[in-house]
C-alpha cells in the first residue's frame, strides 16, 4: 500500500510536467490548427533559461551584491524565465508560422520540426556538449507520512503546476483574450470582424504556451537537475500525445491526459521492468485512442469547423 501511494506521489509530479507542456501544445493546436512540434524544445530552452537566470541570481546573492532569500530567487527565476521564454515563443510564431499561415498544414508541421532542430543544435553551439546542472534553489526536506516519503520539492512542483493550470483555465474561460481564442478555434474568419487581430491572438497563444513550458522546464530542473539539449524531444512527443488525448480545445482534457500519462508510465514501471515502460504505456494509450479517437473532451468535428 505504501509502495502504491509512493508511486501516486511520483506520478503526480511526473504528470505535472506532461500536463504543463501539453497545455501549450493543446492551445496552439486548438486555436491555430497547428502542430507546434518545436514545443518540446521550447520546454528545453525554458529549462536552460531558468538555469541561467537562477545561476545568475544565486551568484549575485553569494557575492553579496543583492542578497535574496531562496524563495525570492525561485519566484524571480520563474517570472523572468516565463517572460523570456514567452518572447522566444512569439519569435517562433513570427518567423516560423505566421508566414506559413495559409500554406499547407504539412509545411507548417515541418517548420516546427526544423525550429526544434535549430533550438537543439543552437544550444549545442552556444553551450557546447557538456551537460549543465540546475542550481539547488530549494533545500530538500523529506517528510514521512504513514510510510510514504514526500519531499517538499515534489509538493511544490505539483502545487505550482496546479496553480498555473487553474490560472490558465480562468484565462481561457473568463477573459476577453480567452474568449477570442475560443472563437478562433471554431471559426477563424469572423473573428477580425469583432475588432480582434488574429495575429495578436496567435502571438499571445504562443507566448502563453511557451511561458507554461518554461515553468515546466524550471520545475523539471529542480526535480532532475541535469539538463541536456535533447531533453525536450521525448518530453515534447509525449506531451503532444497528451494534448491530443485530452481532446481538441480542452484545457481540462490536456491537463488530465498529462496526469494520466504520468500515472500510466509510473504504474507500468511499478509492475514491469522499467525498460519496457514506454512500450507498454504507449500501447495502452494507443488503445485508448482507438476507442476514443477524439480524445477525452474533444468532439467529432466536421470540415465546416475550420476554413
Amino acid at each position: 500500500m505504501t509502495y502504491f501511494l509512493q508511486n501516486v506521489v511520483n506520478a503526480l509530479q511526473w504528470g505535472s510536467f506532461y500536463a504543463l507542456i501539453a497545455l501549450g501544445y493543446s492551445m496552439v493546436y486548438s486555436i491555430l490548427m497547428l502542430f507546434n512540434f518545436a514545443h518540446g524544445d521550447i520546454f528545453m530552452v525554458g529549462s536552460y533559461i531558468g538555469f541561467g537566470v537562477a545561476a545568475a541570481l544565486v551568484a549575485l546573492s553569494a557575492a553579496g551584491v543583492v542578497v535574496l532569500p531562496s524563495w525570492l530567487i525561485f519566484t524571480l527565476t520563474i517570472l523572468v524565465t516565463m517572460i523570456l521564454t514567452a518572447m522566444l515563443g512569439m519569435a517562433v510564431e513570427r518567423v516560423g508560422y505566421r508566414p506559413l499561415r495559409d500554406a499547407p498544414r504539412a509545411s507548417a508541421a515541418i517548420t516546427g520540426l526544423m525550429i526544434g532542430i535549430i533550438l537543439e543544435t543552437g544550444n549545442l553551439a552556444i553551450l557546447g556538449a557538456r551537460r549543465v546542472r540546475f542550481p539547488d534553489l530549494i533545500e530538500s526536506v523529506t517528510y514521512e507520512i504513514g510510510g510514504v516519503y514526500v519531499t517538499n520539492k515534489k509538493i511544490m512542483i505539483v502545487v505550482v503546476s496546479l496553480l498555473f493550470m487553474v490560472a490558465m483555465q480562468y484565462f481561457v474561460s473568463k477573459t476577453k483574450w480567452g474568449m477570442a481564442m475560443r472563437a478562433m478555434a471554431y471559426d477563424y474568419l469572423v473573428v477580425p470582424l469583432m475588432g480582434v487581430s488574429i495575429n495578436s491572438i496567435a502571438r499571445l497563444t504562443f507566448a502563453i504556451g511557451s511561458a507554461l513550458a518554461a515553468v515546466a522546464g524550471i520545475l523539471y530542473g529542480i526535480a532532475y537537475p541535469v539538463l541536456d539539449p535533447y531533453m525536450g524531444v521525448l518530453f515534447g512527443w509525449k506531451a503532444f500525445v497528451a494534448a491530443i488525448l485530452g481532446g481538441r480545445g480542452s484545457i481540462m482534457g490536456a491537463t488530465l491526459a498529462g496526469f494520466l500519462l504520468g500515472f500510466i508510465e509510473i504504474f507500468v514501471a511499478m509492475v514491469f521492468p522499467s525498460t519496457l515502460r514506454d512500450l507498454i504505456a504507449y500501447s495502452i494509450i494507443l488503445l485508448i485512442l482507438v476507442f476514443r479517437p477524439h480524445g477525452f473532451f474533444g468532439e467529432p468535428y466536421s470540415a465546416k469547423l475550420r476554413l
Partner: peptide, 15 residues
C-alpha cells in the same frame, strides 16, 4: 462559434 453561448457571441463583439 459552436459551444459558445448566445450571450458570449454578442459579448465577443465588444472586444
Amino acid at each position: 462559434w459552436r459551444h459558445m453561448s448566445v450571450l458570449e457571441h454578442v459579448m465577443m463583439a465588444r472586444y
